[in-house]
Amino acid sequence: MVADAQADAMTITRQPLTGLHVPLITPFAVDGSVDVTALADLAGQVLDDGASGIVALGTTGEVASLTTEERRLVVDVCATACDERGAPLMVGVGTNATAVTRDEVRTVDPRASAVLVVVPYYVRASEDGVVEHFREVAAASPVPVLVYHVPYRTARPLSVDTLRQLAELPNVAGFKHAVGAVDDVTTAFMSRKPVDTAVLAGDDLHVGPMLALGADGAILAGGQVATRAYAGLIEAWRDGPIAPARRQAAALTPLAAALFAEPNPAVIKAVLTAQRRIRCADVRLPLLPAGAAAVDAALDTLSSISAGGDRTPTAR
């Protein structure tokens, strides 16, 4: 069975990294445990509503607060949902230690189609050190590596030259690009990236401009509360016409701002609870539940987005 799973995973890895990939929250039950039923339902819903794939153990999933056993459980639930629908699964891995990250990718669930590996954080490695980190990690990984470039969390911005060096490493398939802006480095890299390197927009607020610059798709936390709308936005930028794509991006911008008004994923969990898609909005410390004003603002914004036909809030 392991061999079959590995064969299936390798088949999925050949699919291009495009479309909407949703980094799922980790729903908790009232006793604090992982709510497996709610997670399975949510994973199935986003895929059925148009997401190309899902991401397990991302920042939105509160991965830092999960035990090793809980992480395995989350990946298993997400992998099952993806297997049932023939969709790719990305698994978030990585620490600020190369040896530990290398071990994590070696033991990733064989059903994963790619690993999302964060740039080493906190230690403030040199850019050359980051390249060597990913050289070792990519060489050890049984599946393609997506570099998670998020300097406002890692304190390690990367230059255009470094991004290009990373793109050229064997087994590096692309990037989740989440720099908090559409800056000079972003525009220069998007104009010079190798044609076989995928770039997935990672900031909900900037997904429209990133798609306009040629991003292949996106990894968006808001994709689990407005899946059809975000999937439609990416499809519109890819297939045209452009004018409706611009209008849809503008319509989704207030939602992105509202969902991130407090530390992620507090507002998103509250919205999903109001939609009755999860049973509990709890987050784990040091995160705190979202305030009522932020939740109300997000629900009001979401209710105005009707073109995508997304699941609407049913309770406050």
Rank of each mutant, 00 (worst) to 15 (best):
Y122E: 09
A112C: 09
V118H: 03
L57Y: 01
L89Y: 10
E70L: 06
P88C: 04
V118E: 01
E70D: 14
R106H: 03
V118T: 13
D128R: 13
D128M: 05
V75D: 10
R106V: 09
V131A: 12
T68L: 14
L57H: 01
E132Y: 04
T59F: 11
V105W: 02
V75M: 11
T59Q: 09
R72F: 08
G92P: 03
P88S: 08
V119I: 05
M90W: 13
L73H: 11
D76L: 04
G129C: 10
V74T: 11
L116D: 04
A87N: 03
S113L: 03
D109N: 12
P110A: 10
L89S: 09
V130M: 11
V105F: 03
G94R: 07
D103F: 01
R71I: 00
V130S: 11
V130K: 08
A64F: 11
V130Y: 12
G58T: 08
R124A: 14
L66D: 01
A99T: 10
L116R: 05
T95H: 06
V93T: 13
V63A: 15
R106S: 12
V117Y: 04
G92K: 06
V93K: 01
V100K: 11
G92D: 05
T101L: 03
V118S: 02
A99G: 05
V91R: 02
P120N: 13
H133G: 02
T67D: 14
D109Q: 07
A56H: 03
P88L: 04
R124W: 06
R106F: 01
T60K: 05
V119P: 01
T60Q: 08
L57N: 00
A87G: 04
A56K: 01
A97Y: 10
R72I: 03
P88A: 07
S65Y: 09
V108K: 02
D83Q: 10
S126D: 12
V119L: 07
L73I: 12
V117L: 06
R111C: 08
Y122M: 14
S126F: 09
H133Q: 06
G61L: 04
V75S: 10
R124H: 15
C78S: 15
T67A: 13
V108F: 03
G92W: 04
M90S: 14
A56L: 07
A56V: 01
A81W: 00
T59K: 08
V63T: 15
S126A: 12
L66S: 01
A99Y: 07
G58P: 06
A114M: 15
C82F: 01
G94E: 07
T98R: 15
T59C: 07
A79V: 04
D128H: 12
A64T: 12
E104G: 00
R71K: 15
T95V: 09
T95P: 03
V93P: 00
